[in-house]
C-alpha cells in the first residue's frame, strides 16, 4: 500500500510540475492542486502503514494508525484549499481586467531592457556622428 501511495505521489508531483510550467494561470492552478495533493499524500504516507482508528478504548494501541500525520495533512489541505481559492479569485480578477489569465512578465524589467537598447542606440549615433566629424576634419 505504501509503495502504491509513493507511486501515486510521484505521479502527482510529475504531472503537477508539468502544469506549473505552463503560462496560463488556470493550468498553473491545476498544477498547484496536483503538487499539493502529492505532498499531502506523502504526508499521510509518512505515518507508516495504516491501522484501526486511534481512539483509546476501542482496541489495541499497537494496531492504531498514527494520527499525527493525518492531522498535519488535514491542516495542510485546508491551507492549500484556501490559497487555491484566493488564486482563483485573482485569476478571475485578471480575466475581468485583461480578458486573459496569462501570467505576464515583469513590466519594469522590460522597460529597463528597452532603456538599455535606447541608450546603446544613442551611444552608437553619437559615435557615428563623431567619426563623421573626424572624417570631415581630416579632409
Amino acid at each position: 500500500m505504501t509503495v502504491l501511495f509513493a507511486f501515486a505521489a510521484a505521479l502527482l508531483f510529475a504531472t503537477g510540475t508539468w502544469m506549473l510550467l505552463q503560462r496560463r494561470l488556470s493550468r498553473i492552478l491545476i498544477g498547484v492542486g496536483l503538487v499539493g495533493h502529492g505532498s499531502n499524500l506523502l504526508l499521510l504516507t509518512s505515518g507508516g502503514p495504516g491501522g484501526s482508528a486511534p481512539i483509546i478504548g476501542t482496541g489495541d494501541p499497537a494496531d492504531f494508525s498514527d494520527p499525527l500525520p493525518q492531522a498535519l495533512a488535514l491542516t495542510s489541505i485546508v491551507i492549500t484549499f484556501g490559497v487555491t481559492a484566493f488564486l482563483l479569485a485573482l485569476g478571475y480578477r485578471s480575466w475581468r481586467m485583461t480578458r486573459d489569465d496569462m501570467v505576464e512578465n515583469d513590466v519594469e524589467d522590460r522597460l529597463i531592457a528597452r532603456q538599455r537598447d535606447r541608450d546603446e542606440l544613442v551611444e552608437e549615433t553619437r559615435l557615428a556622428e563623431r567619426e563623421q566629424r573626424d572624417d570631415e576634419g581630416l579632409e
Partner: peptide, 28 residues
C-alpha cells in the same frame, strides 16, 4: 498588483509545497 500578485502567490505556494514535502519526509 494582480499581475505581480500572481507570481508572488504561485512562488510562495511552490515553496510551501516543498516545505510540506520536507516535513513529510522528516516525519517518515
Amino acid at each position: 498588483q494582480v499581475r505581480s500578485g500572481m507570481t508572488y502567490v504561485i512562488i510562495s505556494l511552490i515553496a510551501s509545497t516543498f516545505f510540506v514535502t520536507a516535513l513529510a519526509l522528516l516525519y517518515a
